[in-house]
């Protein structure tokens, strides 16, 4: 693929868009799915799973890694609006969620780490030693 973007983030954005379109047809994703939607990245030594969970308290999320499977479980609570509030618009959702993600590689599950920042959950799943990229040197006689 030829990328016309010199900015690496624009190139990534374009690639995400291309992969989304490929997965859901030319109209893009129009159907609802299991919450939260996840993006999975290969960062060499590890897989990185990202999920957008704005307003979710880290204490309300449970993360399990078992063999090649990551499970995210929790609840999103929006909190009570003020008294006598009249809604003009209501697009944000609350409720429980459970998401299972399979990673297509062997993982070192006990080295998994998770971080929650500004509403984005990032789970880092180091690859099992034998699944990590290795540089093989050519011996020259």
């Amino acid at each position: 693929m030829v990328s016309v973007y010199r900015d690496p983030f624009l190139a990534l954005q374009h690639e995400l868009e291309r992969m989304l379109t490929g997965a859901f047809g030319s109209a893009g994703p129009t159907t609802t799915g299991v919450y939260p939607a996840v993006d999975v990245f290969d960062a060499g030594e590890e897989f990185v799973v990202k999920a957008e969970l704005p307003g979710v308290k880290p204490a309300d999320v449970e993360i399990d890694v078992h063999e090649d499977t990551l499970t995210l479980r929790g609840e999103r609570k929006l909190g009570e609006p003020e008294n006598e509030a009249a809604y003009h618009r209501r697009e944000r959702q609350e409720g429980r969620f459970r998401r299972v993600v399979r990673i297509p590689a062997r993982l070192a599950a006990d080295e998994a780490r998770a971080e929650y920042r500004d509403g984005v959950l990032t789970v880092r799943l180091p690859k099992a030693k034998e699944a990590r990229p290795r540089r093989v040197d050519i011996s020259v006689n």
Partner: peptide, 15 residues
């Protein structure tokens, strides 16, 4: 936050 990340499975765009 996305430096060095190669997407392998995509369900949402980022921006």
């Amino acid at each position: 936050d996305y430096d060095g990340m190669k997407p392998v499975h995509v369900e949402y765009g980022v921006g």
